[in-house]
Design a protein around this nucleic acid. Structure first.
Lengths: 124, 124
DNA sequence: TTTGTTATTGATAACCAATATCATTAAATT
DNA sequence: AATTTAATGATATTGGTTATCAATAACAAA
């Protein structure tokens, strides 16, 4: 059924992959583009490759401040966002959060999105 | 300190206020605009009045699918979003969700955002 | 290796939600 | 009624993202 789409191993695919795969700071497409600019890559390609990686389950997306950010951590987890430095950090999802699912409404849960907003240690 | 900004009671303010204040379906600015179109209101004014109501604490915002949606329920609560019909519903925030705060990291929590994504009763 | 097929690329136009600009209008105050 | 100035409506602009398309390059076949 869900056969993974065949991807060509282009130079650009490797560039984007290597630029994001070990990041924990949830960069935007623009940020990745700026870092890869010296290679001559086009910004549309950066958007395309990031979208492809999301489609392939290699990246997750985090929407924040009207921008899509990318996260190589795809297993379920929560985020904490500092409203001062705008840093987004991954954090363990509370185990009991699954027990809190709204099953009573007959809602079939596929995904949980949990974000704590506030001020981080550094910015206080 | 935080003196509430003085607002003039314009016809447009009343229109936007009355259009959103009892809604539970989290409409976008465009949707409100379309409903009020016959009145001759401008879309910029709809955006401005909604922003003013958010500033005054009368509305909360919900970002979904690259659009800002507005919610007259401003007390802390969670959302469930159906990926089929795209309906966003308010739901009670689990009582013990505050206990799950990442205090151990020295993070000062101001706001919790909790959304369940899945398929609602109707769409299954 | 050469050829052929076609996904991918880079440049850029287009899209769309949201905001900024600005002359005009109309609340609120005097 | 006159004055002040916030608010309005039309619309230009912004900024993130996607669509378009001719050229290129990855992969397969010969």
């Amino acid at each position: 059924m869900s056969t993974k789409k065949l991807r060509r191993y282009t130079k650009q695919r490797r560039l984007v992959h290597d630029a994001i795969i070990n990041r924990t700071d949830h960069p935007t497409a623009k940020e990745i583009f700026n870092e890869l600019k010296p290679s001559g890559i086009g910004i549309a390609t950066v958007y395309r490759q990031l979208a492809a990686m999301v489609e392939d389950g290699i990246l997750a997306t985090v929407d924040y401040d009207s921008e899509t950010r990318y996260d190589p951590l795809t297993s379920p987890h929560a985020h904490i966002v500092c409203s001062v430095c705008n840093r987004i950090s991954d954090i363990e999802l509370p185990r009991d959060v699954n027990d809190l699912a709204p099953e009573n409404l007959g809602f079939e849960v596929n995904e949980i999105e949990l974000t704590w907003k506030g001020i981080c240690n550094n910015c206080q």
